[in-house]
Design a protein around this nucleic acid. Structure first.
Lengths: 205, 205
DNA sequence: CAAATTAATGACCAATGGGTTATTAATTTG
DNA sequence: CAAATTAATAACCCATTGGTCATTAATTTG
């Protein structure tokens, strides 16, 4: 006979977060029921409150975790890179593009945008920790290229946004409209076209 | 002594929609209270139900109105244009860029994205009516440029997305993070950098 | 100006769901 | 193996809010 439940203090937090990610991503913050999160995690609602203070705390814990690390990994590649800036841009954009195409964490940006008005603190956190860092990476690469005479004299702040914009587009497409595509859109080809066009457009004359 | 209320059947619908736009944009669908919408429109909740069947119907009416027209206006310029494709792309992108920077309707895309999972019908409508048309405009311009030998041989479907991506970025920035900018970001300069880079990147060799 | 019409109200209902807590039982301790 | 501990439950509370409807009064009609 199966036990009614087991004590698994260590595993619960991660399981609850995982379940909550699915529900929030699917329904949005307000429409998500904690009973459903609990069911999805194989526990009951009361248990959630042993690990998180409130629904809001659960949401914030989610939105703050795990994407920053990805960014740091990319950043680490920057310092020691010795090739051309074009190669560096290719490397980074391919890494991010791959992440955008495959990770299930990409639902987070859409969540944050959707709830930014209700959670100003959270929006500010993202603006500072995630977006600023992401843009910083591209600003660094562009500036490097301009300084080394590889790219034409372009404003790094603006150019950085041009770099990420298509990646953002992929993320939003995947999490919003992809399911209505009868033939799946080829995101990788978009990244490649983006790289060709962008690098040609940036090249010093 | 002021009357307690007036009968204004014709004006109500628009007023309710306007009020609802503000609330939905600010709070999201689920977190929006119809009492607040009513208060913002200067009426009571019951009155809303004289004009709309349900909260969902109100949301859908909003999300389906008014942005398609903007697109048609742009489309009309396409057919008779006789200048270079680069000029045409500049014209269209500046028009859309201006709209993205100034219109209060740009909260709609974010709303739709946020609620797409809860309103699949609506997402499909947007995908078909708004996005497909928007991409169609750019696909047309790119194809025109390639056929006339002005642009290099690039896939119009992919290139079209590269065109809009920065506009989308402006929309999302404005509606999510702009309020945390101590110095406002110069979106117009982004559009200009985008145009320079993109046109250089697309030019036939 | 009286009667008929209907736009608008506001009190009300019922369901939903966030959060609490007394109780249970799995696990640990001595 | 008995006692103590605590992870987990599940029944419960109650504030919120979408939606309804009987009533009111602004407006129109004849």
């Amino acid at each position: 006979m199966a036990k009614r439940w087991q004590r698994r203090k260590e595993a619960r937090t991660a399981e609850i977060l995982e379940a909550a990610l699915g529900q929030f991503a699917q329904k949005g913050f307000a429409a998500t029921k904690l009973d459903d999160v609990a069911k999805s995690a194989g526990i009951t609602k009361g248990t959630i409150y042993l690990y998180f203070d409130s629904k809001q705390a659960l949401f914030e814990a989610l939105a703050q975790g795990s994407i920053g690390a990805q960014m740091d990994a990319v950043k680490a590649q920057l310092e020691n890179f010795s090739g051309s800036s074009a190669e560096l841009l290719k490397l980074v954009l391919n890494t991010m593009g791959h992440f955008a195409q495959t990770s299930d964490r990409v639902v987070l940006p859409r969540m944050v945008m959707a709830e930014a008005a209700n959670f100003p603190k959270l929006a500010q956190f993202w603006r500072r920790e995630i977006i600023a860092r992401g843009l910083g990476i591209f600003t660094f690469i562009i500036r490097r290229g301009v300084e080394r005479g590889e790219f034409r004299a372009v404003d790094p702040e603006h150019a950085a946004r041009l770099c990420v914009a298509p990646v953002l587009m992929i993320v939003l497409w995947r999490t919003t409209f992809a399911r209505f595509d009868e033939t799946p859109y080829d995101h990788q080809a978009l990244i490649e076209t983006h790289l060709e066009t962008l690098l040609t457009g940036l090249k010093a004359p």
